[in-house]
Computed example of a mutant assay.
Amino acid sequence: MRKTQWTLIAAACAAVVLTGCETTNMKMGSSESKTVATGAAGGSSTANASSQLERCQSPLGTVSLVENQDAGWYTILRNEYRLPPTANLLRLLVQQSNCFIVVERSAAGMRAMDRERQIMGSGEMRGGSNFGKGQMVASDYAMSPEIIFSNSDAGGIGGALGGLIGGGRGAAVAAIGGSMKTREASAMLTLVDNRSGVQVSASEGSASKTDFAGFGSIFGSAAGGSLGGYQNTAQGKVLTAAFMDAYNQMVMALRNYKAQAVQGQGLGGGGRLSVDGAAPPSQTRAGATMSTREAQERLVGLGYNLTADGSMGPKTMNAVRSYQKDQGLPQSGRLDKATLDALSR
């Protein structure tokens, strides 16, 4: 009787596998093949975007995607998982979120734009096409993705079940449980201001998924091999979810963004962690020497709206720009040499 029961269980499992052999009509928009990065984006409009994606009311600036193609994780992504660049899915997530406007900086994209300019330069392009200089949009920020952990099979479930039951039944249960695949991934995103080189934000995201991967351990390699494509693709879905989690974390942090500031000299002025025996940055600067607070006090005395607190915050930078404009200087918003020289007169 017991032998008959196990035979029926095996037959039922085999029937589940064989249902995959059924021929079906082509499905467009199949939910089984989707990742969390789904739908489309066109300008500020989206279609069928994931409800889990965080969004912004208006863009925070322009961004370009920068992948380190020499990194070990990138090699595994392309060669082992056979997945496309992470920048492809991040482009979709970023545009759908409306938090940044994506600009093209990939090697292939830049070559395509150069090709059009070369055609224009050859004189063969139709008149009025206007591919001249001065039209490219600057990339305010650079977003860099990185996979920091990826496990395609945490395993261990089947062996534990088989050990608890023991005997012939334990072996069969271990074979079935051994096809339970747990896929895990952890990803990071960093956002850097391209003008100053300052890291604006960094975030980590993770995802995991457990599924019943197949019956190859019970019915032989042929049955298991038929599901191999799905097993490989599933890891890509987990990686996509990890990147969406990282991006959502970044967006939530940026909603309450407040620029970091170093009191005294400001960013790039030497910092507050002084080195023993080193001269203060204000004493090594060529030309006029003046601390940030002193410069602020000069500007306040000249009638500009700011607070002399020794910090280069947004209010101070706006006042510096106004002063630079009035003096006919480049409006950088920084206390550069030319600005300090003018304030010292």
Rank of each mutant, 00 (worst) to 15 (best):
W6S: 09
W6Y: 13
L8F: 08
L8P: 00
A14S: 09
G20A: 14
E22W: 13
M26E: 09
M26P: 01
K27D: 10
M28D: 05
M28E: 12
S33H: 12
K34H: 09
A37Y: 03
A37M: 14
A37C: 14
G42Q: 11
G43F: 03
N48A: 15
S50P: 04
S50D: 15
L53D: 12
E54F: 01
L60W: 13
S64Q: 11
L65M: 12
A71Q: 09
G72H: 03
G72I: 06
G72T: 13
Y74V: 02
T75D: 06
L83Y: 08
L83W: 04
P85N: 08
N88A: 04
L90F: 03
S97P: 07
N98G: 04
I101A: 01
V103S: 01
E104Q: 11
R105K: 14
S106A: 02
M113C: 01
D114T: 01
R115E: 06
Q118P: 00
M120I: 01
S122N: 02
G123L: 06
S129A: 09
N130M: 02
N130V: 02
F131G: 01
G132D: 03
K133P: 01
G134T: 04
V137T: 14
V137F: 04
D140H: 14
Y141N: 07
I147C: 12
S152H: 11
G156Y: 10
G158W: 07
G159P: 00
G162E: 07
G163S: 13
I165V: 15
G170D: 06
A172R: 02
I176V: 15
G177S: 08
K181D: 00
A185L: 08
A187N: 04
L191C: 06
R195F: 01
Q199I: 08
V200P: 02
S201M: 15
E204D: 00
E204Q: 15
K209L: 12
K209A: 11
D211M: 12
S221P: 13
A222V: 12
A223C: 05
L227C: 03
N232I: 09
T233I: 04
K237Y: 11
K237P: 01
V238A: 08
F243S: 06
F243G: 02
M244I: 05
M244S: 06
D245Y: 06
D245M: 03
Q249S: 14
A253P: 00
Y257L: 05
Y257W: 11
A261E: 14
G264V: 12
G266T: 07
G270I: 10
R272H: 08
V275N: 03
D276G: 04
D276A: 14
A278D: 14
P281V: 13
P281D: 12
S282W: 05
S282K: 09
Q283Y: 12
T284P: 00
T284R: 12
R285L: 11
A288V: 13
M290Q: 08
S291I: 06
E294V: 10
A295F: 05
L299C: 07
V300I: 15
G301T: 09
L306I: 09
S311P: 00
K315L: 10
V320P: 04
S322D: 15
P330H: 01
Q331M: 13
Q331W: 00
G333V: 05
K337P: 00
T339M: 10
L343A: 05
R345S: 15
